[in-house]
Design a protein around this nucleic acid. Structure first.
Lengths: 272, 272
DNA sequence: CGACCGTTTCCGCATACCGGAAGGCCGATG
DNA sequence: CATCGGCCTTCCGGTATGCGGAAACGGTCG
């Protein structure tokens, strides 16, 4: 309850001179970034502080966002992300679009294994969960749809990293590696070997990397061009038979891949 | 609102025109509006044409949106709504937030009735579907999560209209009423009576308004302050026992209302 | 090859953005 | 009752920043 979050992560003020204000649009988008899962509603002043945009400027920009419906006010006058923005966000092909096509396969996999099943994509140097289904016999996992995670810590992350462009791999292998258990991989050389293995075997195993009692098995999802665009995984109790799970996960991932390749004809005739 | 028809290329203008271009942010948001369910990916030129923003301007603004992640490009270089925008949209309290709290009750209602169940909110003079569950014995309904509908045509729409501010009611009762079947209501006076009945009975019945074989029964969802913030409905075959469905729908809506009232403690302590 | 269509860059002009300051409106505090 | 602090809103002179036609660039088709 009385959670005293000592400075969440405002990280605004450069502290010194504000020489260039930067493009307006970028600032408006920064205002939207002020909202988060823990703080879904904010006052104008809070938005201003969190985004580092002067109050009067934030006031003007927020008013424009509100006119369009990107933000709206609740009964108390506090601001929150607007329904309109959700509607537009629901058009993202890599989000709901991907989810919709993959869902039947995820459900089958979930029904067969009775474990948690998840679908994720890469965004910059992190992964974003697009969907998650809870299995009846599942381990407790605390991921949120729309949530982000480090690439090295999860099965889906390893798959996506194994097929990411070289510059992404290098950046990730430099950065710090979040450690959650005694078994967490933190040696770049070892990770590099793991990635190679993922590519040759066609699936990844992440054993006790986040919690000490869970193992995840993940496989790549490809688009019509053969590019890896997503990853799908099952999280099971540590000690579960990987030899059994891997083929199941790979088969499901293949099913999603085929669904993506097949569903391309939805586009109306050319421009006009 | 100043709609200044930009006129694509010809601009021989005498030079005396003081055409207001309008705020930048508004224009950037208009670019996002160019995307739709039928056209989830667009070229820059298409975006420019659809939004009425000159090409070079659209180019500059889209570049800013892309930098932030509001839009992204697929393999062919076409633009699409970005994952980042989806992430932020997922924070909308009236969208996913409401959905999450309501889901258990919707599932129960769906399991008991085996019919389609839906949850919707009002946005301006229309309703937006926030969630939809398919029942095993259900009539075919063609609504999409995130989709919009007229308020007069659906059960949820009648409920939300019955509890909407007067100015909304007046606007809606003026406007044209989309007619889908011979039974569609189009007389303002009749609709006004219907709305009064909805308020006194606590539920709405929309009989064969969209398709000739379906009847929907809807009830209001209220927040902690007692305000109607959403509506919940069941769509059944025409002729189904309303007397049986209505109490079920009202009970479920009441459950969601209580869940909303109870779940208010999630807010961290005030600002600081 | 040339016509067509889409994308990208350039640059001078003035529009519309900027943000400190001041005023108003609570609610809490002494 | 007076005072204070926090938040929201409005105002306005100065100029950063957005504007968009034009032209160069690159691909595809007939």
């Amino acid at each position: 309850m009385a959670v005293t979050r000592p400075v969440p992560h405002p990280a605004p003020a450069a502290g010194a001179e504000r020489v260039s204000t930067g493009p307006v649009v970028a600032r408006a988008l920064r205002l939207l970034e002020a909202f988060s899962d823990e703080r879904p509603t904010l006052t104008l002043s809070e938005i201003s502080r969190r985004s580092g945009v002067p109050l009067s400027t934030a006031h003007r920009l927020i008013a424009e966002l509100e006119t369009w419906g990107a933000v709206e006010r609740d009964g108390a006058g506090r601001y929150q992300v607007g329904l309109r923005l959700w509607e537009v966000g629901a058009l993202a092909p890599r989000g709901p679009g991907l989810r919709e096509r993959a869902l039947p396969y995820l459900e089958d996999l979930c029904a067969v294994t009775r474990e948690n099943v998840q679908l994720a994509v890469r965004e910059d140097d992190e992964i974003v969960y697009v969907e998650r289904l809870a299995g009846t016999r599942a381990v407790g996992v605390h991921i949120r749809v729309g949530g982000r995670w480090a690439m090295t810590a999860t099965g889906v992350g390893l798959v996506l990293l194994a097929h990411a462009p070289p510059d992404v791999v290098e950046r990730v292998l430099e950065g710090p590696f979040p450690r959650h258990t005694p078994w967490t991989l933190t040696d770049p050389a070892r990770i590099r070997e793991t990635l190679a293995a993922v590519r040759t075997r066609g699936y990844a195993v992440s054993d006790r990397q986040i919690t000490s009692d869970a193992t995840s098995v993940a496989a790549p999802v490809r688009d019509a061009a053969g590019e890896v665009v997503a990853a799908l995984s099952v999280v099971a109790h540590h000690g579960s038979p990987v030899a059994v799970l891997a083929p199941l996960v790979r088969t499901s991932a293949g099913g999603v891949s085929h669904a993506l390749a097949a569903g391309r004809g939805r586009r109306p005739p050319p421009p006009r």
